[in-house]
């Protein structure tokens, strides 16, 4: 039995979270449940669905394109996360220094984040056009290339990585800048007085102090990277020859090009499982390595 006071606290607590809980329930939990149900169906979104048990999952295991899509998703994530998080920390360190026009630079770094993905995609399509694009023109001036970029199955995924790192770097930079502002000047100065060089100060003072930001960015970027879609949709559309078919793109084409909604839902469930494993792993590691201050 809980005491009356505790119970009333219980009730008012639930009342406070009720609006948010309701919204999350309707737009979060319910669709998740429905998608799980869908993954056991043969459903074309047009006619009456039929129950097929685990057949969709069996098909997935033997689907070569699905396997490719998992590989591409993981390769993309393993490149995107370190490049964007590492790159942004370096940039943030530079922008945190007292230099002229630093506000301008900060704004400039953030602009790609605020630009619509569609616009970014169109611009990159032309920049990276193999025959007439600016990228190959410039590279040609220094006797490099020409490269196929989006049109070469061996380069397309890396071109997407480059484009998305460029597009998302600004967001990570802002987060790191905020974290860097929170590093007490006194600690940095103390380290210097103790004879620590720039690298040692960074390695032993600054880096541990911004580690909560690092953990957040890694988890957040990973979840984003596993679900990459927009940038691919507006540039390569999964091609050439499935070279940029990532899981969400494959899911999309199964659901909305071929009308296999059940099969697509099964892909979504696998993606959900992968995301869950990645996130738990990161949080577990984070709890051991992250310094949350005193």
């Amino acid at each position: 039995m809980i005491s009356r006071a505790a119970r009333s606290e219980h009730v008012s607590g639930w009342l406070f979270v009720a609006p948010a809980a309701l919204l999350i329930g309707i737009f979060g939990i319910l669709p998740i449940g429905w998608a799980a149900l869908l993954s056991f169906q043969n459903n074309d979104l047009l006619t009456t669905p039929t129950w097929v048990g685990t057949q969709n999952y069996h098909t997935l295991v033997n689907d070569p394109v699905f396997r490719q899509s998992v590989n591409h998703t993981i390769v993309y994530t393993l490149l995107f996360v370190p490049l964007s998080v590492g790159g942004s920390l370096a940039l943030a360190m530079l922008l945190n220094a007292r230099i002229r026009f630093s506000r301008f630079y900060r704004t400039a770094v953030f602009i790609p984040v605020a630009t619509s993905t569609v616009a970014t995609g169109l611009i990159f399509n032309w920049l990276l056009e193999p025959t007439y694009g600016v990228a190959n023109y410039m590279l040609g001036k220094v006797h490099l290339g020409p490269y196929g970029f989006f049109q070469d199955p061996d380069q397309a995924l890396y071109s997407i990585v480059a484009m998305t790192v460029w597009g998302w770097l600004g967001f990570d930079v802002i987060v790191y800048l905020a974290a860097l502002q929170g590093v007490p000047e006194s600690l940095v100065e103390a380290a210097r007085l103790d004879g620590a060089g720039r690298w040692a100060t960074f390695r032993h003072v600054v880096f541990p102090l911004v580690s909560p930001a690092t953990l957040f960015l890694i988890v957040w970027s990973t979840i984003n990277a596993l679900q990459v879609f927009d940038e691919i949709y507006v540039t390569t559309r999964g091609g050439p020859l499935h070279a940029t078919t990532v899981m969400v793109y494959y899911l999309y084409s199964q659901a909305f090009e071929f009308f296999h909604a059940g099969y697509a839902a099964a892909i979504a469930e696998v993606l959900f499982a992968i995301t869950l494993v990645f996130s738990l792993l990161q949080l577990w590691l984070g709890n051991r390595r992250v310094h949350y201050g005193s």
Binding site: T117, V118, A119, G121, D230, V234
Partner: peptide, 8 residues
């Protein structure tokens, strides 16, 4: 139109 408008 280029794939763009589809999203826009």
């Amino acid at each position: 139109l280029i794939a763009a408008t589809a999203l826009l």
